[in-house]
Amino acid sequence: EFTQISGYVNAFGSQRGSVLTVKVENDEGWTLVEEDFDRADYGSDPEFVAEVSSYLKRNGGIKDLTKVL
């Protein structure tokens, strides 16, 4: 089950073990991109978060400006 990723309007994530599946949706709710990120592939949590965040930004993730990150 996908849940909204904090700080984004149209990005959602689903966690299974160490694998986080993220997706970005358009205004109609269609999935634009979907990608798996395995936490085990990264040396640290900040590196993992930075990679996921960068992916979302590159692929149309819209920041939720009503929330302070």
Results as ranks from 00 to 15, higher is better:
Arg39Gly: 00
Gly13Cys: 15
Lys23Gly: 01
Asp64Ile: 09
Ser18Pro: 03
Val68Trp: 12
Lys67Asn: 11
Val24His: 01
Ser44Asn: 06
Gln15Asn: 08
Ser6Cys: 15
Ser54Val: 06
Asn59His: 12
Thr21Asn: 03
Ser44Gln: 01
Gly61Asn: 02
Gly29Leu: 03
Tyr8Asp: 03
Val19Pro: 00
Glu34Ser: 11
Ser6Glu: 13
Ala11Leu: 02
Arg39His: 03
Glu28Phe: 11
Gly43Pro: 10
Asn10Val: 06
Ile62Asn: 03
Val9Pro: 03
Gln4Pro: 12
Ile5Lys: 05
Lys63Gly: 07
Asp27Leu: 13
Ile5Gln: 03
Thr31Met: 07
Asp64His: 08
Ala50Leu: 09
Leu20Trp: 07
Thr31Ser: 07
Asp41Arg: 09
Thr31Tyr: 06
Asn10Arg: 07
Gly17Ile: 05
Arg16Gln: 07
Thr66Met: 09
Phe48Ala: 00
Asp36Tyr: 10
Gly7Ile: 06
Gln4Tyr: 08
Ser6Asp: 12
Phe37Lys: 00
Ser54Asn: 14
Asp41Trp: 08
Gln15Gly: 05
Gly29Asn: 04
Phe37Met: 01
Gly60Val: 01
Tyr8Gly: 06
Gly43Val: 08
Asp36His: 13
Asn26Asp: 10
Ala50Ile: 07
Lys67Pro: 13
Gly60Pro: 00
Thr31His: 03
Asn26Tyr: 06
Asp41Ser: 09
Ile5Gly: 04
Gly13His: 08
Trp30Met: 14
Ala50Met: 09
Val22Trp: 02
Thr3Ser: 10
Gly7Cys: 14
Lys67Gly: 13
Val33Pro: 02
Gly7Thr: 03
Ser6Gln: 13
Glu35Thr: 12
Lys63Phe: 13
Glu1Ser: 12
Gly7His: 05
Ser14Ala: 12
Gln15Arg: 15
Lys67His: 12
Lys23Glu: 01
Arg39Ser: 02
Ser14Trp: 14
Arg39Cys: 08
Glu28Gly: 08
Val52Ile: 13
Lys57Cys: 15
Arg16His: 09
Arg58Ile: 09
Glu1Val: 11
Asn59Val: 09
Val9Gln: 07
Lys23Gln: 05
Thr21Gly: 01
Ile5Leu: 10
Ala40Thr: 08
Asn59Gly: 02
Phe2Thr: 04
Lys67Glu: 12
Lys63Asn: 07
Lys57Val: 10
Pro46His: 15
Arg58Val: 08
Gly61Leu: 08
Val9Cys: 13
Arg58Pro: 02
Lys23Ile: 10
Val9Gly: 04
Tyr8Pro: 04
Tyr42Gly: 00
Leu56His: 01
Val9Leu: 13
Thr3Trp: 13
Val19Gly: 01
Leu69Gln: 14
Glu34Val: 13
Ile62Cys: 08
Glu51Thr: 11
Asn59Met: 11
Glu28Val: 10
Leu32His: 06
Asn26Met: 06
Gln4Asp: 04
Gly29Lys: 04
Ala50Asn: 10
Ile5Tyr: 06
Asp27Lys: 11
Ile5Thr: 04
Tyr42Cys: 04
Ala11Gln: 01
Tyr8Glu: 03
Thr31Glu: 04
Phe2Ser: 05
Gly17Glu: 03
Ser53Glu: 15
Arg16Ile: 07
Thr21Cys: 07
Ile62Leu: 10
Gly43Arg: 10
Asn10Thr: 05
Lys57Gln: 14
Gly17Met: 02
Val49Phe: 15
Glu51Gln: 10
Arg39Phe: 03
Ser18Tyr: 02
Lys67Ile: 12
Ile62Arg: 09
Ser53Lys: 13
Arg16Phe: 07
Ala40Asp: 09
Asp27Met: 11
Trp30Ala: 13
Glu28Thr: 08
Thr31Pro: 07
Thr66Pro: 07
Lys63Ile: 14
Glu25Ile: 15
Glu51Gly: 07
Leu20Met: 05
Asp36Ser: 15
Ser54Trp: 09
Ser6Asn: 13
Thr3Asn: 08
Val49Leu: 14
Arg58Cys: 13
Asp45Met: 09
Lys57Leu: 12
Ser18Thr: 12
Glu34Leu: 10
Ser18Met: 06
Gln15Thr: 12
Phe2Leu: 05
Asp27Gln: 11
Tyr42Pro: 00
Asp41Thr: 07
Asp27Trp: 09
Asp64Lys: 10
Glu1Ile: 12
Val24Arg: 00
Ala11Pro: 01
Asp45His: 08
Asp64Thr: 10
Leu65His: 10
Thr31Lys: 06
Ala11Phe: 03
Phe48Lys: 02
Lys57Arg: 09
Val9Ile: 11
Leu32Phe: 07
Ala50Cys: 13
Val52Asn: 02
Phe37Ile: 01
Ala40Pro: 01
Val9Tyr: 07
Tyr8His: 06
Leu65Val: 11
Lys57Asn: 14
Val9Phe: 07
Ser18Asp: 04
Glu51Leu: 07
Ser6Thr: 11
Glu34Thr: 13
Asp38Cys: 06
Leu56Gln: 00
Leu69Trp: 06
Phe2Gln: 05
Val33Glu: 05
Leu32Val: 12
Glu1Thr: 11
Phe12Gln: 04
Ser6Leu: 12
Gln4Asn: 07
Gly29Ile: 02
Ala50Arg: 09
Val19Asn: 01
Glu25Arg: 13
Arg58Glu: 11
Glu34Ala: 09
Glu34Gly: 05
Leu32Ala: 07
Tyr55Gly: 04
Leu65Asn: 11
Pro46Met: 15
Glu47Tyr: 03
Val49His: 14
Val24Thr: 02
Lys23Ser: 06
Ser54Ile: 08
Phe37Cys: 02
Ser14Val: 13
Glu25Ala: 11
Glu35Cys: 14
Tyr8Arg: 06
Val52Ser: 00
Thr66Ser: 11
Thr3Gly: 06
Gln4Thr: 08
Tyr55Val: 02
Ser53Ile: 14
Thr31Ile: 11
Leu65Trp: 12
Pro46Thr: 15
Thr3Tyr: 13
Phe2Lys: 06
Asp38Gln: 02
Val22Asp: 00
Trp30Gln: 14
Lys67Leu: 12
Asn26Trp: 05
Asp64Met: 09
Arg58Leu: 12
Tyr55Cys: 07
Glu1Tyr: 11
Val33Thr: 08
Asn10Phe: 04
Glu51Ile: 14
Arg39Glu: 02
Glu51Lys: 09
Ser6Tyr: 13
Glu28Trp: 10
Glu34Tyr: 10
Lys67Trp: 10
Val22Arg: 00
Ser53Ala: 13
Lys63Thr: 10
Leu56Met: 00
Asp36Pro: 05
Glu35Tyr: 13
Phe2Pro: 05
Ile62Ala: 04
Val19Glu: 01
Ala40Leu: 11
Tyr42Leu: 01
Gly13Ile: 13
Asp64Tyr: 08
Leu20Arg: 01
Val52Arg: 00
Glu28Asn: 11
Asn26Pro: 01
Thr31Leu: 09
Val49Asn: 13
Ala11Val: 13
Tyr8Val: 06
Glu47Leu: 06
Ser14Asp: 02
Val52Asp: 04
Leu32Asn: 04
Ser53Gln: 14
Glu34Phe: 09
Ser18Asn: 07
Leu69Pro: 13
Val68Met: 14
Val33Ala: 14
Glu1Cys: 15
Glu34Asn: 05
Arg16Met: 06
Leu65Ile: 11
Pro46Arg: 14
Ser53Thr: 14
Val22Gly: 00
Ala11Asn: 01
Lys63Ser: 08
Thr21His: 11
Ile62Met: 08
Asp36Val: 14
Gly29Gln: 04
Arg39Ala: 03
Phe48Glu: 00
Val49Pro: 00
Pro46Gly: 14
Asp38Gly: 02
Glu51Phe: 10
Asp45Gln: 06
Lys63Tyr: 12
Glu1Asp: 10
Arg16Asp: 04
Glu1Leu: 10
Leu69Phe: 08
Ser54Pro: 00
Pro46Tyr: 15
Arg39Tyr: 06
Asp64Gly: 08
